[in-house]
Amino acid sequence: MTVKHFFYGLIISFAVPWLLVVAIPFESMRSLESVEFSEDKDERTGPYIPSRGGRMSNGSLIYAAENCASCHSQVIRPTYAGNDLFREGWAGASKDSRRESNAFDYPGEMNGAGNAFAHIGESRNGPDLSNVGYRYEGEQGYQDLLVRLYNPRLLEGNYKSICQPNPALFKTEDDKGQANHRDTLDVPTKEGKKVVPRDTALTLANYILSLRRDDQVPDSMNYNPRKGKK
């Protein structure tokens, strides 16, 4: 083996998988073709356009910087890869709407620096967050979510949680007696003080509320085991 052959071997053995596993799939997934609803099966027509609301993009920046993905996943795996579809509340608001994650579910998701990056997650030390928005419905839900971000164990019935408090996202200021803003947290504080969220907490809360990934998808990409059994 001469040094020349050695380097040829190295280059070929690395370049082939690099092209096939990284470069080509990257390019082909960069612009996905839209999937059409079919009149017969979906009772509607037109392309599938994923719906997401809220300040999701800049919310995902904070989600990334706080590294929420080290404990929370955001993927509902198909049945070949796990039982995620069946766990209560993970795959959708109801049994009929639940579905696995698809490639259109992550528009605008970013890493801490604003590059496209989906927070699939590292572990499930906490629950999956693909459809966490449904767990905090209405005004009370919004308040609960803020308290949860401040300190998860202050929520009633949640004292066993091992989720982290995030005091950095909130500030404690003097309570000057004005009527409480809707964002003021209902948490125990020192006399004459109140806890209010910073912008980062509100953005993150908005992002979390936008995580609802169970909109209707074309029949061709829907693998809900209950589909059609209405």
Partner: peptide, 21 residues
């Protein structure tokens, strides 16, 4: 590869960026 595909190009598919990571 990771730096260029995820950070420099930056607008690939979010899930594939995670896959490259």
């Amino acid at each position: 590869t990771a730096h260029v595909f995820i950070h420099v190009i930056g607008d690939g598919h979010p899930v594939f960026a995670t896959a490259i990571n």
